[in-house]
Design a protein around this nucleic acid. Structure first.
Length: 503
RNA sequence: GGGCCGUUAGCUCAGUCGGUAGAGCAGCUGGCUUUUAACCAGUUUGUCGUGCGUUCGAUUCGCACACGGCCCA
């Protein structure tokens, strides 16, 4: 009989270290339960340090506190009759002091064979060593889970980005900085949720699988829904459904969830990314800029404890009022040789676009040209948080027209360190205008723009029932976490970034 | 999709102007009852990413491919 593929792979993957550990596990199996689950702890490393680091050796000796702690062995210093183990749990590291004479007969000899990476539990007295390190002097120690594979190098850790992403668990075991990134991510999302709930927003979940992908200019992933026998899409945004909910009377809603865009991968783009999207009735884009500014400031304080932080060697200040510039004003401000007037005519804008080496597509209107020029000569250069407003109608098919200048919308995006962090606007609630904008999108799609939107008839119907005056915004959660954690790549803040399957 | 860089022991890395490889850590053996990346002595481990080519000989040179990273579109 041929061995299965899995067996083959396992065999190929084996080396001496794994074989030795597997043999140790076999010995454990022969003695009884090799993977026990009856050890209970009453202490965590981090709490022990927080509570007792200040106590002296003598004070601890008088108290003679008994604790039981558990975790993964990350360092060991074994001597003939006594040893020190550094054990890591979810809160940090605590040292175990293991003395042969305090353990039952024969246990110390077994213990000496345990490996770095094993999960152990120990019970004993809290004490301080002569060098002042808080430790648990164990009178009972058990191997709770045998680790068959050697951990990465104990000091330099795991550096190989491919392994860090593919085997994130290893990265998390070994690299404290990586653990911190993901706890910061969790705190950010928690604080965001609390911020909105405190302001009477209701959290909702809307479909990931949609028959018409809407709400964003992006190419969707496609799939087939067997039970309905229908081709479907993974959503590119929850926008249209959230606004349907506002039509339904939920005047403040938000969703923190994944969006999927079948597009390029880069340090700033992941095809599967997390977005906060929220809608507030009886508010406009100006209200949301104010809310965004306050929310970002609040999150920074709550999550990293300061509104001033360093991102890739640049100090970012969320404490000062965020700059606000119109799209055309920003282009003019960052390029002293460009005048807003030149940007306002099709011929002038084309000329400027060509100066920046932009390949002008014939189907582009003035608005698209202006957007391209902005991206070419402003976006990357914005460092401190800056709202850009008044985006052209052509590139904002769901946003409300400005009352005084109908060629632009009441829309903003906020940029930090050359990256768009959020996009919001007063919602277009005129169903007839929206229908016309959808028709323009369909024309663009037919002309070959894969990112153009579909015509969503039901959404128009919803608007015809009446969407109250509303503003909404999407916030790139991953990108915000990148800022808070000083991470250069979006993959660094996603636990399991997509990788090409290994062959 | 294009450009550049990388892939060597379980991990972190060196190296070979072409003669099949080393260090530290981890592992193993021995010693050590307050260590701190413990220490001391000894010791094991590699399809040098894959394939093809050039060559007497390729981990090293060339080409292709795979995977990853960064930049650009």
């Amino acid at each position: 009989m041929c061995p299965s593929k899995n067996q083959l792979e396992t065999e190929i993957d084996e080396n001496d270290i794994i074989a030795q550990r597997r043999s140790k596990l076999a010995d454990m199996r022969s003695l009884g339960i090799a993977f026990p689950n009856d050890f209970r702890r009453d202490a965590f490393a981090g709490e022990l340090h927080a509570k007792y680091d200040e106590k002296t050796k003598e004070e601890l000796a008088v108290d003679a506190m008994q604790v039981s702690a558990a975790g993964r062995v990350v360092l060991k210093r074994v001597m003939g009759k006594a040893s020190f183990l550094t054990v890591q749990d979810v809160t940090g590291r605590i040292q175990f002091y293991v003395r042969k004479e305090e353990l039952p007969e024969g246990i110390y000899e077994d213990f000496r064979k345990w490996d770095i990476g094993d999960i152990v539990g120990g019970v004993g007295q809290l004490m301080k060593t002569n060098k002042g390190e808080l430790s648990v002097q164990v009178n009972s120690i058990r191997l709770l889970t045998k680790s068959l594979r050697p951990l990465p190098e104990k000091h330099k850790g795991l550096a190989d980005t491919e392994i860090r992403y593919r085997q994130r668990y290893l990265d998390l075991i070994v690299n404290e900085a990586s653990r911190n990134v993901f706890t910061t991510r969790s705190k950010t999302i928690h604080a965001m949720r609390r911020y909105l709930i405190e302001r009477d927003f209701m959290e909702v979940e809307t479909p990931m699988i949609q028959s018409i992908p809407g709400g964003g200019a992006a190419e969707p992933f496609t799939t087939h829904y067997n039970a309905l026998d229908a081709d479907m899409y993974l959503r590119v945004a929850p926008e249209l459904n959230l606004k349907r909910l506002v039509v339904g009377g939920f005047e403040r809603v938000f969703e923190i969830n994944r969006n999927f865009r079948n597009e390029g991968v880069s340090t700033k783009h992941s095809p599967e990314f997390t977005m906060l999207e929220y809608y507030q009735a009886f508010a406009d884009y100006d209200d949301l800029m104010n809310l965004t500014e306050d929310m970002f400031r609040t999150l920074a304080m709550q999550v990293i404890g300061t509104t001033e932080f360093v991102y890739q060697n640049t100090t970012i200040d969320f404490g000062k009022p965020f700059a606000r510039l119109t799209l055309l004003g920003a282009i003019a401000q960052f390029n002293s040789d460009i005048d807003e007037k030149d940007l306002s005519s099709l011929s002038g804008a084309k000329k400027i676009a060509k100066q920046f080496g932009i390949e002008v597509n014939k189907s582009w209107g003035l608005g698209k040209l202006q957007m391209e020029i902005f991206e070419a000569c402003v976006e990357d250069r914005i460092e401190q948080p800056t709202f850009i407003t008044q985006y052209p109608i052509e590139v904002s098919p769901l946003a409300r027209r400005n009352d005084t200048d109908p060629s632009v919308t009441d829309r903003f995006e906020i940029f930090v360190m050359g990256t768009e962090i959020a996009n919001g606007f007063s919602e277009l609630n005129d169903p007839e205008d929206q229908a016309e904008r959808f028709r323009q999108q369909v024309l663009a799609k037919e002309a070959g723009d894969n990112e153009a939107m579909h015509y969503d008839e039901d959404y128009i119907t919803a608007l015809e029932y009446g969407l109250p005056p509303t503003a909404g915004e999407g916030v790139g959660v991953d990108r915000l976490v990148m800022l808070f954690t000083d991470s250069p790549s979006i993959r660094d803040v996603i636990l399991f970034p997509h990788m090409r399957p290994k062959k």
